[in-house]
Design a binder for these strands. Sequence first.
DNA 1: AATAATGGCAACCGCTCGTAC
DNA 2: GGTACGAGCGGTTGCCATTAT
Length: 233
Amino acid sequence: MDGQLGWGTLDNDGWRKGPWTAQEDKLLMEHVSLHGDGKWNSVSKLTGLRRNGKSCRLRWVNYLRPDLKRGNITPQEEIIIQELHALWGNRWSNIARSLPGRTDNEIKNYWRTHFKKSKPSKNVEQARARHLIRQRQEKKQGQEEQQHLHHQGAQQQQADMRAPMKQAEEAAMADDMAEMTYMYSVSRMLQGGGFGGYSSDGSTEDGSWGSLWNLGDVPDHLSAVTALYGERR
DNA sequence: AATAATGGCAACCGCTCGTAC
DNA sequence: GGTACGAGCGGTTGCCATTAT
């Protein structure tokens, strides 16, 4: 990477780079316990730590945070990762939010080492295609409803507003999808052995993701997970 | 036993986005 | 409206440990 710099040395601005020492970890943890996380660029001033803000943030988020879950990715988590990746692609931070205690970096590394080499399975491709089709249908439906609701005289105004509204719709839709996917995954876990029928590429043994991606099924699971989902928030 | 290849993970980089001024 | 800055994100790199030859 920084070839000539090597690890554990100072860069041109005097910042330390490379692996963190126990002493540095201690300083950073003390800083966060006193001032909270955020304002990472002030860490060096307040603690004397010769690390830049980005480095401090990364160390905290990926390694020092007390709520981190250490240890191997479980099969359940693996399934969730696969499903959410099929849905969102490389949106690691989004995926990480559905896996409490796991970091985006951890998930990203896991994906790269475990799944990247193999081509996306046909099932994953199908799942993604179904999702995109449905998303497009819903978007179209939403736009039609808006057109119906608005008076003709407001059409010009509406055209002006369309871009930001579209963004808001997409954001809301993404949130909904996140919730549905998370709840569905949890519901399958709660069913116990619900993952047993899944092969390593995340598809079912009979080769279909069928019900998972038939989102019409999702509401059937909602009541089963509502309580747990509520606690999560 | 020595060396090469591979896997896993921590850390850095460049970019984008949001916000304050 | 433009700019600067902080924070966050995804991609990439490098080191170390393990496994294969």
